[in-house]
Amino acid sequence: MTANDGKGPPLRVGEVRFSYGKTRAVDGVSFEVAAGEIFGLLGPNGAGKTTTISMISGLLTPESGQVLIFGGEASGASGAARARMGVVPQEVALYDELSAAENLRFWGQLYGLRGAALQDAVRQALGLVGLTDRRNEKVGKLSGGLKRRLNLAVGLVHGPALLLLDEPTVGIDPQARLHILEVVRDQAKAGCAVLYTSHYLEEAEQICDRLAIVDHGRVLAAGTVAELRRLVGEGPVVQLRGEVDADRLKALAGRCPGVGLLSCADGTASFSARDAAACSGLVRELFQAGLKLEDLRVQEPNLQSLFLKLTGRELRD
């Protein structure tokens, strides 16, 4: 297959596997990202998200499976495929000694831009992330949030058709996060295919058109946010903290019609309820049982509850 025949979708990942020594980091992950779509890989640290992105960006070669970028193989020296791809790594991969504009100029040049086209691209990228006024400042002097924005701009400077974002909002303030999410949305609206990894549930729900929940290198569930929510059920989720005992709570759930125990560990437990009535019955049973509870919450089903249901544990930062 040619490096880029332009016939396939921007990104197709099929059954890829990769191990670090004896540790299997990615175990048969498959998904596809269409043009103009934001696809999220959601999972805790160590789930295999970064390894997956490394295989897509050509840094690692899959042991098995296939990564196709616009129909061409990603691994090997497929320069044409890489030229259409923008990568924003988890770390702020910039040169502190150079200014914001110099950084963008360098990365733009690496992607083949030159002359007026390069100057235009640098100007546009700076404008996109709101750094026009700081263009001549050394990166080392910028705040963490501004560095993150520039990190994103570097991935966009050459106008990629496929954008890989590996946790681009880690460790920044809410304002900078919102700005970055806005830029990503605008890119997708402009037709760019975006692969977005995160372990922030709210962020993923907010920005992604479709999601894959990954853990231990496997895709546990995939679909739109609505489809994933339905996997948990339509009813609310009851979460409690306190003196909890798995056997006792299991028996208690059995006495309540339409209630199931999702998880029970480390002093916390979660139940799924079929509807409001089932939820009321569960709460009543909990108080009647005389459990010493420190906290009790009733929530609408969300990705957190789905993750709980799928893995039996909470997705934390």
Partner: peptide, 14 residues
């Protein structure tokens, strides 16, 4: 260590 090398390797060069 700072990730710029890996980033370079995602660009179209060997």
């Amino acid at each position: 260590q700072q990730g710029t090398l890996r980033r370079q390797l995602t660009a179209p060069l060997g």
